[in-house]
Design a protein around this nucleic acid. Structure first.
Length: 482
RNA sequence: GCUCCCUUCGUCUAGCGGUCCAGGACAUUGCCCUCUCAAGGCAGGAACACGGGUUCGAGUCCCGUAGGGAGCGCCA
């Protein structure tokens, strides 16, 4: 880790699965690092033992890897600046707690949570900001010793100095100024000895050589605390950039929603990593290029200057567009793997519905009619099931058509087993029907549906045997309306 | 309550005082292509939250108002 090498990080708490908001933060940090030729690292902020779970960490790593956001160091790979999980960093924190203590930047606070809650309530009621009243701030050494001896649990608070204000240049919001008087002394170490977010987060960024911190806007007004802390510690302050939050389609905060805003859910629906990245990279960031981009192109076009300030809405219709593009871009092999491979969410169902020998041909046949993996199920039953399912629209078409058309087709299948154009041409000669009134009944008879892939390809896929069976099935209802 | 942030078509956004009667993408509408769907091509509708300033000139700067969001936690 060289001194000036740009380094960004994504530092989630393993208390749940990733949602699109988290993922976008990770993506931006990844893109920023790669664009600057630097490194992107992962850090697990698992100081809250109650809520942190190993399985969530494992899931996050797996999901980020799946997305293609590779990291050069993280909980699973230390590069010497770790460990990259906070639950393993007590020693480092102790060192810096001591340093703060030595410089009188911190003091023990014996207030109980009930007392604090009451004080907060009173301040709020009086129309004042709910800040720590400073009860334990100026306790004498004797009093401290006495209380400590009585076994009262103590937290450590950071003594906010008498500076006038804290200024910093936000990477996305420009010059920021906060009055120090607005900031109350805050807890940096809990009674159980674990560090609080403000402390561990800031200290770790400094110790891990993080140069740029892209994080949610919700951290903006807390940033002065961390700057104060790092200054007191004489540690380097990273450059902060506060990105706008992502909200759900209905405007609700993402974190409170589930379903289509969870990465896991999208993944299990069959959305592709690059579709998600293309979508997210444009939420709160503007690209010159309106087209679908590869990860390298996303990296190349990324710029801190192009980060937006206003909240962005996650809209599924936009994601769907990128999904179509992603599917369109993938070659036959990649598509087959996506639909039929190990990772496919509908692998089992498709294997049950489509004969193994036909699987690849099937995948290629329906690729333009599939947006998420589940869509293939409809075509699987429609094209492979026996008897053929007939949609009501298709039944309608068949009832209204001339039964002679189907009869002709049945007779002619054997003569034109693979060539739909030839078959259709022959049927036309026998029936004098053409255009839609020729093709639509054939489509309905062969696929049981009124829309779908090109008939030339459908027919080749079905083969003469299946085609004949299906035509005979269709013959039962053909012309019944006359 | 206090502090801070945000506000351009339905959605994502471009716009860094004149070249903007506001551009692009998605979505939408119509047409073309076509055996259907999709894709593709063409055309259309659709926005500067509001009110004051500053300026010869404001989407762009300033101040208010309204609306939305965040923070003020022994949560991160």
């Amino acid at each position: 880790m060289s001194a000036d090498r740009p380094r960004t990080r994504f530092a989630p708490s393993p208390t749940g699965f990733l949602h699109l908001g988290n993922v976008r933060t990770a993506l931006f940090n990844f893109l920023a690092a790669r664009h600057m030729g630097g490194e992107f690292v992962l850090r697990s902020e698992d100081t809250d033992a109650e809520r942190s779970r190993e399985e969530y960490l494992v899931a996050m790593l797996a999901d980020l890897e799946w997305l293609g956001l590779t990291w050069s160091a993280g909980p699973d790979c230390d590069d010497g600046s770790g460990p990259y999980r906070q639950s393993l960093r007590a020693e480092a924190y102790a060192r810096y707690f001591d340093k703060l203590e030595a410089s009188a930047h911190t003091y023990p606070c014996f207030c109980s949570q009930a007392e604090l809650a009451m004080a907060r309530k009173a301040q709020l009621a009086a129309g004042k900001p709910p800040r720590y009243p400073g009860t334990c701030r100026d306790l004498g050494t004797a009093e401290r010793a006495e209380r400590a001896a009585s076994g009262r649990p103590a937290t450590q608070r950071f003594r906010v100095g008498d500076e006038d204000q804290v200024r910093f240049q936000d990477l996305v919001r420009g010059a920021q100024r906060f009055a120090v008087a607005e900031i109350g002394d805050f807890i940096i170490r809990r009674a159980d000895g674990t560090p609080s977010f403000f402390f561990s987060n800031a200290v770790d960024d400094a110790l891990m050589g993080i140069t740029h911190v892209l994080r949610g806007e919700d951290h903006l007004s807390n940033t002065p605390r961390q700057i104060l802390l790092l200054s007191a510690l004489e540690l380097p302050v990273p450059r902060y950039g506060h990105i706008s939050l992502v909200v759900a389609g209905d405007g609700a905060p993402l974190s409170k929603r589930h379903g289509s805003t969870g990465l896991r859910e999208l993944r299990s629906l069959g959305y592709l990593p690059l579709a998600i990245c293309n979508h997210l990279a444009r939420l709160g960031h503007a690209y010159d290029n309106p087209q679908f981009m590869s990860m390298d192109e996303l990296v190349e076009g990324f710029s801190l200057e192009k980060l937006g300030r206003s909240p962005a809405r996650h809209d599924m219709t936009q994601l769907r567009h990128w999904q179509k593009e992603a599917l369109h871009q993938s070659d036959a092999e990649a598509f087959n793997d996506w639909l039929l491979g190990e990772a496919s969410p509908v692998r089992e169902e498709l294997a049950a519905a489509v004969p193994a020998a036909d699987a690849k041909a099937f995948a290629q046949l329906v690729r333009d009619n599939v947006e998420v993996a589940g869509d293939a199920l409809h075509w699987a039953t429609q094209l492979c099931a026996t008897p053929m399912p007939v949609t009501s629209a298709a039944a309608e078409v068949l009832k209204n058509c001339d039964a002679a058309l189907i009869d002709a087709a049945i007779k002619l299948v054997a003569a034109h087993p693979q060539d739909f154009k030839a078959l259709a041409g022959a049927v036309r000669e026998h029936t004098n029907l053409a255009g839609k009134s020729l093709f639509m009944p054939l489509r309905a008879a062969l696929t049981g549906d009124t829309h779908g892939p090109e008939m030339v390809r459908v027919y080749a896929f079905l083969g003469a045997q299946r085609s004949r069976e299906r035509l005979e099935q269709a013959r039962q209802i053909a012309g019944s309306k006359k």
